[in-house]
Design a binder for these strands. Structure first.
Lengths: 151, 151
DNA sequence: TCTCAAATCAGAACGATTCCGATTTGGGTT
DNA sequence: AACCCAAATCGGAATCGTTCTGATTTGAGA
């Protein structure tokens, strides 16, 4: 979908949003870490390195705009904090999410069609499939028992 | 697993927990609505009809004990409120959850084995599959556009 | 440059959940 | 039936992620 910071900025502009340094900082973070999920706090920490006075309000507002513009996609981890990652180009799919490094690995498999066939009387409106675990690298590096729920 | 309020109370007793009227009220709600999910607030509302002075602390503590004792199982809906329902007897499985009435309908299908085979290098630790929609009855009754996020 | 809606800030507000210190109570023991 | 004490409860404060508010600043088109 969006490949570069520039194309995203262009899209925002066409949608009537202004472009600011803080927004660039947010977009950059996602573009430069294409496969990672970031929590609002992580985004805040990144931006505040460049703009120490940035507020959470600005972070959340920017994230909201980026979600609305399909630049990033939100996902709720099991720890009650929303995370975001750059929207994937391809269509509907799910991810393997590393509990340690936050990497997300897309997978093709989606069980919803099979399930839909099995329950013709239930009108399926939506679904979420989230798969947690450890990527190859993180599984090797000792302390793999971080579990969900850290920064 | 647990079929009656009495058998649940017995299990709690054996685990060293005292039995109180408030706990009975909580257990009753789940037993008498075997297929429904309830939010903490809904449980609170139910109990406070009988014990007007009950506190949220008591509700959450009781829910915690019941989860720990495998009497009820928690599920996070997409609206950021935890819901609970009586633990199903059978093993691992997923549910269709009605966004309108809260009913949950167990299904056999679980895609995790298939996915595990496809990604041998990723150590899958956990997964969540949540399917939202409208049960047959609720789909028929007009206003089916309640979406997620009401009481 | 001028203008003004959009963006930003600091801090208050919010809602679900948890914690805390003080008080009450279930239920086993006399 | 009275005693005891850990468990349970209460009310209210605290926490945490997120959102709102009111005042101030700023991007970018005229």
């Amino acid at each position: 979908m969006h490949e570069t910071t520039a194309s995203i900025l262009q899209a925002l502009k066409e949608a009537g949003y202004k472009f600011t340094g803080k927004r660039r900082a947010v977009v950059d973070l996602f573009v430069e870490n294409r496969d990672r999920y970031f929590s609002a706090k992580e985004v805040y920490d990144h931006v505040s390195q460049i703009y120490p006075s940035v507020s959470f309000d600005t972070i959340y507002r920017t994230l909201g705009i980026l979600v609305e513009q399909n630049v990033i996609e939100p996902m709720e981890f099991a720890d009650d904090r929303a995370r975001y990652r750059l929207q994937c180009a391809r269509g509907h799919h799910h991810h393997l999410v590393c509990l340690r490094c936050g990497a997300s690995i897309p997978i093709e498999e989606c069980p919803i069609d099979r399930i839909r066939q099995q329950v013709p009387n239930f009108h399926i409106a939506d679904h979420r499939l989230e798969i947690y675990g450890y990527c190859q690298r993180c599984a090797q590096e000792g302390g793999e028992r971080l579990e969900r729920g850290q920064t």
